[in-house]
Structure formats: structure tokens, C-alpha cells
Design a protein around this nucleic acid. Structure first.
Lengths: 223, 223
DNA sequence: CCAAAAACAGGTATTTATACCTATTCACTA
DNA sequence: TAGTGAATAGGTATAAATACCTGTTTTTGG
């Protein structure tokens, strides 16, 4: 009577993916029916009739497929929109509260750090499948703190806009404000405006801080 | 007649460690006899009579144990010194040639990037155990380039000095050249001199490039 | 539709960073 | 011991970034 829980894996590192798969397969009641190495191809494969999992484990640090950048966050948003029944559990190396809260807000049904116990993965998958979500203490705290922030009119949260992310990414590619202005067909003044906002929002002193922030928050890829 | 190859795992992420272990255990002829989550405890455990593996898989991004920082590189140096018969295979997310060459020079018998095929891990362990080392094409290229550099009197190689690393680390902490000069009790001119050398050596255009370089080459910690 | 936020653009001024030089001292080593 | 590289320090420029302002247009959400 107990059907197996169908699991999907989205993880770029083949070794880690195989490892997780081996762990999952060693448990009864679990079945890996879907695998992908990048975010973009996930949607493609599912549209083309790939088996639909019950629970999708998504690695956050996804590499771009060709020119198309597709982060774990974008994938989460897209998946929840297209397949509301699909449960999504995020796997990430990041333990930042704002980061966790952001992903949950994007629609994820659970958030696990990559150095967690394998048993927790088991529990998370079962909980996500049967109860709809798996919120551990860490995640709960992150959500609560962030909820609190949203309720207050005080602007303590950092929310970075799309354009700011663009400028940040180009900045990390060693482009000067002038070059970025040329690339985006906007004025240098505007670029500097965005940069100043970024310095404020991230609490950085200079570009150095911006680069560190961008890497920590996976706004840029180190690859 | 075929004894199992005894394998040691040094990897901080429990999930990844379990995954690797599951993969290794699924192959006949392999046996995981040693596990550790950080570099410092490896030496401790071995000294206290933990089973000595034939091949040790070492993750490069090891976390500090308490106050003691122990990188994969340091561990490699120490292990080869204490146990010359032990074969060491590095597991890393970094694909930088200088980085690879540095580790091989430190005594590693093989270097694998974390997104490699599981089969390659298999081959690497076997090769390291039977032939003493596993040098794939990527590693070979890295070594050759670096050897070539060392032989030529031409200054194409990047070798960063201690002082430059200091300046680089402080730069990554958002200190300006002035502040660094104060901290190190040297002239701003000197700091700028070091920075200019760093820009040249790393092929960077500005501090942004330096920060990225520092993170990629683990000269600074993101934690 | 209205209000807020985001993106845009400008000015002025100062601080930092970078480019390109030279030159000295010190430690190591071939 | 002669030579090398590292670390030190200086000068002179220019380029770039940062700090503060002001404002308009466009987009977005309630």
C-alpha cells in the first residue's frame, strides 16, 4: 500500500548527486525518478514528459546552462508556479537567515544546509511529502526574524533590486562604472547611484565589500 | 588474494561524506576505514591508533576545529611527512591550475574536482593505491605549466609573497591602502606597491579582481 | 487610480585607486 | 661574493570610486 516517494535531484556536482542518490536509494520507500545538473534543463525535461517527482531536492548553487543563468531561487519560483503540487527542498551551503527566509518566501517547502545529517534529509523528504513542508528550528528562526522585519516599518532588511543585481554582477566582473554605463546604455551617474545604494544596503565600505556580499549571497558565480 | 583497499575520508559536510561513503561501499574491493570532519582531528585520531587507510580522500575546504585552522593543504603536508606510505587524493571545488599544482607540490598524489564523475574517483583510488598516484589530464597540464614556469627565468608564474598575502587579506576586509599602511606600520606607497604587484601577478584590473582571486585561491575565508 | 518604489540623470567635491617610474635595504643563495 | 628577489619608500599623474545633494520618469502594487 505504501507507494514509494518519488524524488527529483537538481545538483550540478555529479559526485554529490551520485552520493545523495546512493543514500536515498539505500532507504526503502524512496525512489529517485528525476535528475538534473542545472536549473534550466529541469523545466525543459519536465515539460517534455520527464517523470514528475513528489519531492524535488534543489541545490542552490546552480551553474548557468550556456548563456542562461538560472539560480536555485529562480528555479524554485518557477517550479512552484508551474507545479503547485511539487514539494521543493533546498540544499545549500549557506546558513544565512535572510537567505533562508528568502528561499522559503520564494516557495520552497524546506531548507537544509549541506552539512546536515543524512537522517535529516530523510525526515525532510517524508515531512514535505506527507505534511507539505519541513521547517526545522533553524528555518523557523529565520522565518520568524524575517517576518518581524517585514512587519516593522523600519527598513532593516536588505532587499536588492534587479537592476542593482545587474550592476553588482558587472562590478564583480571588474568592469568600471563607465564600462557598465556603456554596456547598459545608461548614464554613469545612474550606475554610481545604484552602487551607492548597494553600499548602503549591504553595509559595505567599498567595492570589496560588495564583491564579498555578492559571493556570499550567490549573486555571482565563482566559476 | 585481493585485499580491499582501505579508504579514509576527510570531509566536513556530513551529507557529502555519507554520500561518498555510500558510493565507495557500493564498489567491491573498497572499504572505508576512517572518517573525519576536520583536518586537525585526523592526525589526532591516527596517532591514537585509528585504522590507517591506504588512500585518504581529503576535502580542501576544511573548517577550523575550535581555534585551530587546519587547511587541506596543511593536512596534506603533515600527512605525507608522518605517513609516507599513505596516498592522498584531494577533493576540491577549485579548478585553478596554480591551485592544483600547489597541492601536488605539497605532496598530494591526486587531485579531483568535486563535480567529477564517480567513476573517476574509483579510478583515482585504484591508481593511487597500485601505481602510487593518479594524475589526470587536467592535473598534468597544471603541473606542466607550473614546472615550465619554474624552469624559465621569465616571470610568468604567479607566486605571491607573504607580505602580498597580508595586504590582500586586509584589502578583502575593506581596508583602504591608508588603513593598511597604518595597521602594518609601513608607508602607503609600499602598500600601493604591493597592490600593484598583486594586480599584475593575478592579472586583475582592480580590487574586484583581487578579491575574487583571493577567494578562489582560498587566501581569504568567506566565513 | 494613486502612492511608493525603482530606475533614471545631473552636479560638486573629496577620497581612493591605479599607472609608471626610480631607488634603497635586507636576506638568501648559487 | 655577486646576484636575486622581497620589502621598503618616494614622486607624478590620471582614473575611478565615494559622499552628498537634487530632481524626473517609469514601473509596480494596493
Amino acid at each position: 500500500m505504501n507507494e514509494k516517494i518519488k524524488i527529483g535531484l537538481v545538483e550540478d556536482q555529479a559526485l554529490f548527486r551520485t552520493g545523495i542518490k546512493a543514500i536515498l536509494s539505500s532507504w526503502p520507500g524512496f525512489e529517485v525518478v528525476f535528475e538534473s545538473a542545472d536549473g534550466y534543463s529541469v523545466i525543459e525535461k519536465l515539460k517534455q514528459g520527464a517523470p514528475m517527482p513528489d519531492v524535488m531536492l534543489v541545490d542552490l548553487s546552480l551553474p548557468p546552462n550556456g548563456d542562461i543563468e538560472y539560480t536555485g531561487e529562480q528555479l524554485t519560483v518557477e517550479l512552484t508556479r508551474l507545479y503547485p503540487d511539487l514539494r521543493i527542498i533546498i540544499l545549500s551551503v549557506h546558513d544565512d537567515e535572510n537567505f533562508i527566509a528568502r528561499l522559503i518566501e520564494s516557495g520552497a517547502h524546506g531548507y537544509l544546509v549541506k552539512d546536515c545529517d543524512p537522517q535529516e534529509v530523510h525526515d525532510a523528504i517524508v515531512a514535505a511529502h506527507t505534511k507539505g513542508s519541513y521547517i526545522n528550528e533553524r528555518t523557523l528562526r529565520a522565518i520568524q526574524k524575517n517576518m518581524g522585519k517585514k512587519q516593522k516599518p523600519i527598513k532593516t532588511e536588505i532587499e536588492i533590486t534587479k537592476r542593482e543585481i545587474e550592476i553588482l554582477q558587472l562590478t564583480c566582473q571588474q568592469y568600471t562604472a563607465d564600462e557598465i554605463a556603456d554596456k547598459l546604455f545608461i548614464s554613469v551617474k545612474t550606475v554610481n547611484g545604484h552602487r551607492n545604494n548597494l553600499l548602503q544596503k549591504t553595509g559595505s565600505k567599498n567595492v570589496t565589500g560588495l564583491v564579498i556580499y555578492a559571493i556570499k549571497n550567490q549573486i555571482v558565480n565563482l566559476a
